[in-house]
């Protein structure tokens, strides 16, 4: 008693076969199993049901389960591929795969577009961009006048909205992001290259080979 075998852990809700996940992603089987260590930690932090709830995601990101953040909300919603309010293990791995250093830039550009298309209209609209600028100002406790915010949004639209129709479509975003790769820096997590180093215990115990 008191010792939970890896077989029992694997029956957690939302668990998915690492072999399948490794086939679909850049991760090896060992790396998927190391990611399971991280997943397990986050998904048992508040509600111990083996699924990542929004409060648990916020706790892992901010060390505070009540910290509201527009962008964390967006990331959570996009990771929640089944749209059932929780992130399952397979969703966690497939979504983090986009942030892998070896994942093609095109996938990162597409993910960032969905992230910024707050209302899912297929465009990044002026109002959405303004809402996001206001959110980051609020988060960083920076105070700018409404005029200054309008100027930032206008300037950005001047650069990105090539056909000047007042919204940024996917092709425009692709061109803009390709010209400004620094905008996608947050779409790559160097940690994912060394995930088995960060969580080595499972690799030693799992016996999985690639």
């Amino acid at each position: 008693m008191g010792c939970v075998s890896s077989k029992q852990l694997k029956r957690d809700k939302g668990y998915e076969d690492p072999n399948i996940l490794a086939k679909e992603t850049t991760f090896s089987v060992n790396e998927v199993e190391a990611l399971f260590q991280l997943y397990k930690k986050i998904s048992h932090s508040i509600i111990k049901d083996g699924l990542i709830h929004k409060e648990e995601f916020q706790l892992a990101l901010f060390r505070n389960s009540n910290q509201k953040n527009l962008f964390a909300d967006r990331i959570f919603d996009l990771f929640d591929l089944k749209r059932n309010g929780v992130i399952e293990f397979g969703e966690f791995v497939r979504s983090l795969n986009i942030f892998h250093p070896d994942t093609p830039m095109a996938e990162k550009i597409a993910f960032a577009f969905r992230l910024y298309d707050l209302r899912g209209t297929g465009f990044i609209e002026r109002e959405e961009l303004k809402e996001m600028v206001l959110a980051i100002l609020n988060e960083s406790e920076l105070i700018l006048s409404d005029d200054a915010v309008e100027q930032i949004v206008d300037q950005t639209f001047k650069q990105a909205d090539m056909n000047e129709d007042g919204k940024i479509d996917f092709e425009e975003w692709k061109a803009f992001a390709s010209k400004n790769p620094a905008l996608l820096k947050n779409m790559t997590l160097p940690y994912l290259k060394d995930i088995t180093m960060a969580f080595p215990s499972f690799v030693l115990n799992s016996g999985a080979s690639d």
Binding site: L38, I42, A60, L61, F62, N69, L70, F71, A72, D73, R74, I75, L96, F99, Y116, L129, M132, V133, A135, I136, L137, E139, S140, L144, A148, V149, Q151, I152, V153, Q155, T156, Q159, A160, F176, N180, A182, L183, L184, K185, N186, L189, Y191, I195, A198
Partner: peptide, 25 residues
């Protein structure tokens, strides 16, 4: 200077995007 700021560069700095925090022990 607001006119030289890029909105996407600003918002990409949000802590909400800092998924590296998930890996901090």
């Amino acid at each position: 200077r607001p006119e030289s700021m890029n909105a996407f560069a600003l918002i990409s700095r949000s802590q909400g995007f800092n998924l590296g925090n998930l890996f901090e022990k």
